[in-house]
């Protein structure tokens, strides 16, 4: 009875207040959470532990010590090399909506004091998709890390290659993987953090080539989309398919780390892999 009474009331609250951004509804437990409380809790649902997606800047704030981030290549902008339908408009809208120039933020900073090169994909910007600019900036991050003798930490959140740049987006897989190879040859560590969601061409390139793979709880991580797989095999997919926990069982990620411990864990890993010994 109480539940029956409460629900309509919550919905009316939702209708009135969500546009103002006071309350957020958890997509997993469907409970309404006071938005400020959610923010304080690093956007992890205090009721069920669901890790809400972070924007690129939010992820950067979580990971990089305050006042230490120095952005690289913020001035690279996409072109529309194929003259692809609706791309120019959608790109402009993404820039306006997010206030950011592309789907990745790259630079150097300190993670609990450890100097590192960082690339953070931004799912808010065209689904974090990798086109020419994302590929170029990620590749430059690895190359600069080699020059500066820094470890690399990437945080992926991406639907994959950017369809609107066609096969040029596909070539960014090769470009970024080649750059990972340079870091590898230089003997520098690479921690790949897999956030919700990481799929397609980003998983099939640099994101799966980390020395250590760290995933956030519940994150969707995979290559093919669930719908495509269902259509191909004509079966329902198993419970928890393509989640971080599933990947851990399959031996594809090393650690699942709750958001509150992410920064400390990454820093610890970098220390253990020999980073941070030289002050950069």
């Amino acid at each position: 009875m109480l539940n029956w009474l409460r629900r309509p009331k919550y919905e009316s609250v939702e209708r009135r207040d969500i546009p103002a951004g006071l309350w957020a509804k958890c997509p997993r437990c469907a409970q309404l959470v006071y938005r400020k409380e959610l923010e304080r809790n690093l956007k992890v649902c205090p009721k069920c532990g669901y890790h809400h997606r972070l924007s690129g800047p939010e992820r950067l704030r979580l990971l990089v010590d305050e006042g230490t981030f120095q952005e690289w290549d913020a001035d690279l902008a996409s072109e529309d090399p194929l003259g692809f339908p609706e791309y120019a408009d959608r790109y402009r809208q993404a820039v306006q909506r997010t206030g950011r120039p592309e789907a990745v933020l790259c630079g150097r900073g300190r993670i609990d004091g450890v100097p590192a090169a960082v690339a953070v994909l931004d799912f808010d910007f065209l689904g974090g998709s990798m086109g020419s600019v994302v590929g170029e900036k990620v590749a430059r991050t690895f190359e600069r890390a080699v020059d500066l003798r820094l470890p690399v930490v990437t945080c992926s959140a991406s639907g994959g290659a950017r369809m609107q740049e066609g096969v040029l987006s596909l070539m960014q897989l090769a470009k970024t993987v080649a750059a990972v190879g340079r870091l590898h040859a230089a003997g520098l560590p690479f921690v790949s953090v897999l956030c919700d969601p990481t799929t397609g061409g980003v998983t099939a390139s640099f994101a799966m080539l980390g020395d250590v793979h760290v995933a956030e709880p519940g994150a969707l991580i995979g290559f093919a989309g669930a719908r495509v797989i269902e259509q191909t095999i004509r079966q329902k997919l198993p419970e928890g398919f393509q989640t971080a926990e599933f990947l851990l069982r399959c031996g594809l990620v090393d650690l699942i780390v709750p958001r509150a411990e992410l920064k400390a864990t990454v820093a610890r890993l970098l220390h253990l892999m020999g980073a941070g010994e030289v002050v950069g």
């Binding site: 902008a77 996409s78 086109g131 600019v133 170029e136 740049e165 470009k175 080649a178």
Partner: peptide, 10 residues
């Protein structure tokens, strides 16, 4: 492969 892709400076 490093050369592949098109972008500009904003």
């Amino acid at each position: 492969y490093r050369r592949m892709g098109r972008f500009s400076l904003r």
